[in-house]
Design a protein around this nucleic acid. Structure first.
Lengths: 350, 350
DNA sequence: CTGAAAGCGCTTACAG
DNA sequence: CTGAAAGCGCTTACAG
C-alpha cells in the first residue's frame, strides 16, 4: 500500500542510497539512472515519510527571524515572535531551530546589519517584517540567490519568489472601521480621520487604510451626507497631538466619529477623555496596553486587531509545511480582521 | 543530551523492552524493577520521541466523532467536521483514524444508537456535541468506564473526567451582542430579544445568551433608559414568526434594535425586509447561508460566529496532544467571540 | 557513480 | 517476568 524508498529502489534496480540521492537532488548519480528513478517515483506517487526522515536526519531546519525588536513602550513586535515560538514548540519533534535577528525599526543601518547576520547564519528560510522597502527588497534578492526561502509578514513587499505573505488586507480593514463608525453615528455626521505617522515607512499601511475607509463611504447611500475630514499629525508626542486636535475641534464643531489609522489611537483617546468628549465614536488599531486601557474605560469603542501572534504562527507553519512537507502555500495568507470591543476583549488576550 | 530508552535501560540494568513495558503500563514487570525504572525515568526527565514511537508502532489513534449530521438546509454541523479533518490532515503522518457517527439532532433514539456504534468501534477518544443532556451524560460515563477519553464541543456537559470543553462562552456572547446594539441605537430606546427555539435542548445556550445580554444593560449607565422586551417563539416557521412579530410591533412602536439569540436571525431579517424596517439594528448568531445573505443586504448588522470549524479543529488537536504527546489540555478552551459584519465577512469564510 | 551497512529511538513478537 | 533481535522508513558515512 505505502510506497517506500526500498520499493522504488527494487523497481529501478538500484539501492536505497541512490534513490535517496535522486530525491534530494544531491548529485553523484548518472543521468541515466536519475531519469529512471524519477520516472518510477512519479509513477508510484512516492511520498516520503516525514517521521522517518526527521528521525534519521542529522540536520535541523534553520529559520532566521528578521523583525523589529520590542521595547517596554511598544510590545507589538513581541507577539509575532511568540507566535513563531508557539508554532515551533507544537512542531518541536521536527528539529526546527529558530534564530532571532531583531533590528531597530527606526535605524536603517541596523536593519542592514542584522540582515547580513541573518544570511551568515545560513538559514533554510527567513521570516521578515519589511520596514525599509528598498533594503528589504535587496535582502530578499540575496536570499533568492542563495536558495533561501523567504516570507514577508505584517507588510507585503511582494518580492518575486517570495514563499508567501502573511498579514492583513489594510484596505479592507479601513472599510471595516468605516462600517463600525457608520453604525454608531447618525446620518449626515462629521467624521475625522487621524493619521499619526512619525516615520514614512508605515505609509503604505496607513494610506491603504484611509483608502478603504473612504471607499466604504463612496459605496453607501446613508453615507452621502457624511463629511470626512483628514488630519495628519507628523509627530507622535501628546502635546503636539493635543494642539492639532484642539485646532481641528475649534474649526469643526460636532464631530461624531474618529478613525485613527494606526495603534496611536490611545493618544486621541487621552485627548477625548481630557476634554470630556467620550461620547464621540472612536475606532483604531491594535491590542496594545494603552489602547486596551481606553477600550475598557469606554473611550475607545472598537479596536481592529492585526493578530500579530497569528502572523508569526502562520509564518512558521508555512515554512515547515514547505520545507518539511513539501506543501506549497498560497501566495497570500490574509489574516481575518477581528473586531474587538470591551465585551469580547478577554477571549483575544492570549 | 537527549535521554533515550536505552539510557534508562542501562541505568536500570534491564533491557529496552522492559522499560517500554513500564512506560506503557502494560504489566509483565515485577513490582521491584517497575519501581526502579519509574524512578530513573523521572530522575532523568525522560521524554519519549514521538516520531520514533509513531514510526515503530502498528496501532493508529482511533477517534470517534459523535455530532449531528448536516443537511442542505443546515450546514452548521458540517463545519466542525471539516475542522476535525483539517487538523487530521495536518497531523496525517501520525496515524490518526477518524470515524464519523453522525446522528439526527431531532431524534433522541438515533443519538443513542450512534453512541452505541461509537463505543463498539473501540476508539481511543470521542469528540461529542451534546444535544441530549441526559443521554450524553450516560454516554460519557460509559466512555469513562472503558477508559475512552471524551471531549464535548459547542455545548458543555461538564462531565467529570472530561478531557476538555471546546466552545464559546454563551453569556459573554450575549454581552457582546448587547454592546453592539448599544453602540448602534440612541439612548432610551426599546430593544427586542427574540428567541426562536423549537427544541428544549438548545435552551441552556439561549438562556445564557439572554442572561449575558441583560447583564450588559444592568452594568451600564447609558442603558438605564433602555427598555428590553422578550419574545419567545416556539416554532421555527415563517408564518408563525411573522404573526408573533407583527403582534409585537403592534403592541410596541419604535423598536430600535433586535437581538436574536440563535441562528434563526434570518427569519427576523426576512420579516424586517418585507415590512421595510431595515433601519432597525439586528444582531444574531452564526455564519449560515441565509444569514450571510441578509448580512450582505444590510438587514442584519452583525453576526456572532461560534467558529464551528475551529471547535472541531481544536478538539482533534487536543486529542492528539493528550494521547500522543501526553500534554494535558486546560479544562475549558473558550473560542473567541468573533464579530462579523459585511465588510470583514470575506476573511472569515474558509 | 553506486551499494552495503549502521543508525535514528522506539515497538513488537518471540523465546526462554 | 525478562531479554535479544528484527523492524518501522529514512539518512549517513564509508568503501569501492
Amino acid at each position: 500500500m505505502k510506497v517506500r524508498i526500498k520499493d522504488i529502489a527494487d523497481r529501478a534496480g538500484v539501492s536505497a542510497g541512490t534513490v535517496d540521492r535522486v530525491i534530494h537532488n544531491r548529485g553523484e548519480v548518472s543521468e541515466k539512472t536519475r531519469k529512471r528513478v524519477i520516472g518510477i517515483l512519479k509513477e508510484q506517487h512516492y511520498e516520503p515519510d516525514i517521521l522517518a526522515r526527521t528521525l534519521a536526519s542529522r540536520h535541523p531546519l534553520k529559520v532566521a527571524v528578521l523583525i523589529p525588536f520590542h521595547t517596554p513602550e511598544n510590545w507589538f513586535w513581541k507577539k509575532p515572535l511568540s507566535g513563531i515560538y508557539d508554532a515551533c514548540s507544537e512542531l518541536n519533534h521536527f528539529k526546527i531551530e529558530v534564530r532571532e535577528f531583531l533590528y531597530d525599526q527606526f535605524a536603517k543601518g541596523d536593519f542592514i546589519e542584522k540582515a547580513d547576520e541573518g544570511l551568515n547564519y545560513l538559514p533554510d528560510a527567513v521570516i521578515a517584517a519589511p520596514v525599509y522597502f528598498q533594503e528589504t527588497t535587496e535582502f530578499f534578492s540575496r536570499c533568492s540567490e542563495s536558495g533561501i526561502h523567504f516570507i514577508s509578514v505584517n507588510s507585503n513587499i511582494d518580492h518575486p519568489g517570495q514563499l508567501t505573505y502573511v498579514g492583513q488586507d489594510s484596505r479592507s480593514s479601513g472599510r471595516v472601521a468605516a462600517q463600525l463608525i457608520d453604525f454608531g453615528v447618525l446620518k449626515d455626521s462629521r467624521i475625522l480621520v487621524v493619521s499619526i505617522a512619525m516615520d514614512k515607512d508605515n505609509y503604505s499601511h496607513i494610506l491603504r487604510r484611509e483608502e478603504g475607509f473612504r471607499e466604504f463611504w463612496g459605496r453607501n447611500n446613508k453615507a452621502s451626507g457624511m463629511e470626512i475630514i483628514n488630519l495628519s499629525i507628523a509627530k507622535d508626542s501628546y502635546p503636539y497631538i493635543r494642539r492639532a486636535l484642539t485646532e481641528t475641534f475649534h474649526k469643526y464643531d460636532s464631530i461624531a466619529g474618529i478613525f485613527v489609522t494606526n495603534s496611536r489611537v490611545y493618544q486621541v483617546a487621552k485627548y477625548l477623555q481630557n476634554t470630556s468628549r467620550e461620547d464621540i465614536c472612536l475606532v483604531g488599531y491594535d491590542l496594545i496596553n494603552p489602547n486596551i486601557k481606553y477600550l475598557n474605560s469606554g473611550t475607545i469603542d472598537f479596536l481592529i486587531s492585526q493578530k500579530p501572534h497569528e502572523q508569526g504562527y502562520k509564518a512558521l507553519v508555512t515554512v515547515f509545511n514547505k520545507l518539511k512537507m513539501n506543501k506549497q502555500p498560497s501566495p497570500e495568507q490574509l489574516i481575518p480582521i477581528d473586531i474587538i470591543c470591551k465585551e469580547n476583549l478577554c477571549c483575544y488576550q492570549v
